[in-house]
């Protein structure tokens, strides 16, 4: 069996597997001032401007509350054929992220608890399964 490959390994890593598949950890950061952000970067803290050692990597569980969803009916980029659904999620650790709803997810409404998982989105050049982050209703 080919190992899995992550589409964006700079943004998340594969966590332990459970009944529903692989969990995911988002690669966020924390500033000395307490501000938590995603993704990790070392340019400087958006809240206080500290940089360098003040910013440290911090793994964020992909659990949060849905703020909004929108199914996109028209999209110019042929690599991302519509329709697809974008979700805006407030992670439990603070950052708000926007990403894709899993294709097999039930419809979601704001206020619901949602969880991100790694879902197969295609095959790599050597036949490995490519995984990307997708959200769906929390089990």
């Amino acid at each position: 069996m080919q190992p899995n490959k992550l589409l964006k390994p700079g943004l998340y890593s594969e966590g332990s597997s459970d009944r529903d598949g692989a969990t995911v950890r988002l690669k966020g950061g924390r500033c000395r001032c307490g501000y938590v952000f995603f993704p990790m970067q070392t340019y400087g803290c958006e809240r206080c401007g500290s940089h360098g050692d003040a910013l440290t990597p911090c793994e964020l569980p992909a659990n949060g509350t849905l703020l909004a969803e929108a199914t996109v009916h028209l999209h110019a980029d042929k690599n991302r054929p519509a329709p697809f659904t974008i979700v805006k999620v407030a992670l439990d650790d603070g950052p708000v992220i926007r990403t894709l709803l899993a294709d097999d997810s039930a419809p979601v409404v704001p206020g619901q608890r949602v969880t991100g998982r790694l879902a197969p989105v295609g095959q790599g050049e050597s036949g490995e399964t490519v995984l990307d982050l997708r959200f769906s209703i929390a089990p």
Binding site: K8, G10, L11, P39, Q41, Y43, L67, A68, E69, A70, V72, H75, A76, D77, R80, F84, I86, K88, I97, R98, T99, L100, V109, P110, G111, L133
Partner: peptide, 27 residues
């Protein structure tokens, strides 16, 4: 910017505001 993103290529302006529409409508 040199900072990666999850799916911002899929969130063009009308989708940013479609998300806000959904939030406003529900709230």
């Amino acid at each position: 910017t040199g900072i990666g993103h999850l799916a911002e290529d899929a969130v063009v302006p009308f989708t940013h505001f479609a998300l806000l529409t959904n939030e406003y409508a529900v709230r």
